[in-house]
Amino acid sequence: MSELALRVRGLKKQYPNVLAVAGVDLDVRRGEVFGLLGPNGAGKTTTLEMIEGLINPDSGEMEILGLNWKQDGSEIRARIGVQLQSTSLFNKITPREALTLYGGYYPKARTASELLELVQLTDKADAYHITLSGGQMQRLALAMALVNDPELVFLDEPTTGLDPQARQSLWEVVRKIKSEGRTVILTTHYMDEAEALCDRLAIMDHGQVLTEGTPAELISQLAIPSVVELSFEGRAPATEGFEALLGNTIEVRGDLWEIPTPDPKSLLPRLLEAAEKARIPYQQVHVRRATLEDVFLHKTGHSLRD
């Protein structure tokens, strides 16, 4: 058995007005949670749907669980689980019925009650689909992606549009799926989600993978693993003059000054002294580790939310 759950080389997709995916290479190991992180329109979903067999790539090679779409289509379908960005079901089907129905499409299937328990929907098992909340619908969609006991699970933006509590409970399920030994590939545009769930991730922008690695690796690739923040009441003042006084570059973001530094310990006393001297009206000082957000900003030159 191949050690890789997924191997992709040179995947490309051209749409009439845009090169959606511009040559993507990916290696996903068995048993890991792999994230595709990037803003809307980065090509994450197109990449995922080519791997799932929904979109024909213009060029590129794919090996899914050691199989390829040309020869082993039905076997791949039987062994992967897919949660699309939105899952549309009949309004008046119940979660139990939906799971039983879809389970019947596969040679082997897990029972509806087992899956309902896994995604904590047991008490909604016999309610009509239309009466479920957004979070419950997403959990049902996730359970449907697990109905065939898949080795490889694809989740396309599983938590988009959910409230924080619903996101947390979905993260729990993803962790359970991983602990059952399955490989998970998910897309997200949430940094915290990628950091919380993914063993490894690829950062995508404009149809390309910019960088790839574990969250810790990606952050440590940055020369500046820490950031000192000064917060102000209202908009932060301009930094001219003070930058020269301090001898560090300062980025102004909203009501913050952000000062990236490899060594916060030696920066802090200098910073406080200089701020005192220059009568900078800051409110608070905060030191934080660099995050994936900083990695993204560094790699793409723009923030995820732009």
């Binding site: 929904l54 549309s88 499409y105």
Partner: peptide, 13 residues
Amino acid sequence: EKGKFRRLAVTPL
């Protein structure tokens, strides 16, 4: 339009 066919397309049915 609602993607019901797409959901079916990823199953072996």
